[in-house]
Simulated scan of single mutants.
Amino acid sequence: MNTHIRRLNENDPVIISHAFQEQGWEKPVEQYLRYLVEQHKGERVTLVAELDGAFAGYVNVLWNSHYPSFREQGIPEINDFNVLIKYQRQGIGSRLMDRAEELIRERTDTSRDWGRCILRLWQSSDPIRPPRIYPGWQGNS
């Protein structure tokens, strides 16, 4: 299996929304169109994972966090991190997180603790499964 991580593009909003609708999650096309506009403005980067050419998941890096204290300190936020259920536990989330870490390292002042970022995890559609931190991701490696 071949996993490819890339930035969100103009073809993705409909594909992503449809993929989540197929598993019963409401993720409107407009959400991803907004992500695309914000990415073009340099406010966020949306990373998309594909497995053998099929959409599998995504994660966002927000350069200006919604949390005031982090925004004031220039600490990025990793948010809206989703992998389709059928692709979970195959290393895709870890690959997305690894690439998000790389982006943060590339852009953040390396003289300070670049790993200080906010990671928000939800598994909103499954109240039984607790949120998990992905193996190997520690935010300070």
Rank of each mutant, 00 (worst) to 15 (best):
M1E: 05
K86G: 00
T108S: 13
G91E: 10
Q90P: 11
R120H: 07
E38A: 10
T3P: 05
V83Y: 00
N140G: 03
F20Q: 00
G136I: 01
G53A: 06
R89W: 02
A54H: 12
V83E: 06
A100G: 03
Y58G: 02
V45P: 03
W122S: 11
L84N: 02
S94Q: 14
V59R: 04
T108E: 04
W122G: 09
A49T: 01
I75Y: 14
F55N: 05
N79F: 05
G74N: 05
Y32P: 02
G42L: 01
R7I: 02
F55E: 00
G24C: 08
R89Q: 09
I133R: 14
Q39P: 06
D98E: 12
I15M: 12
I128K: 11
Y35G: 02
P13Q: 00
L96C: 04
R120D: 12
C117W: 08
T110G: 12
S94T: 08
E50G: 02
Q39T: 07
G115M: 07
I78T: 01
Y58N: 08
P130C: 09
P68Y: 13
E30K: 07
I16K: 00
D80P: 07
R44C: 04
I104H: 04
S124A: 14
L103D: 03
L51V: 10
R132Q: 15
R105M: 10
R99Q: 08
E38L: 13
L8P: 02
Q31D: 09
L84Y: 01
N140Q: 15
V61G: 01
Q73D: 12
T110H: 13
N79C: 15
N82S: 11
G93F: 00
E22D: 12
E10M: 13
Q73N: 14
R44P: 00
T110L: 15
P131T: 12
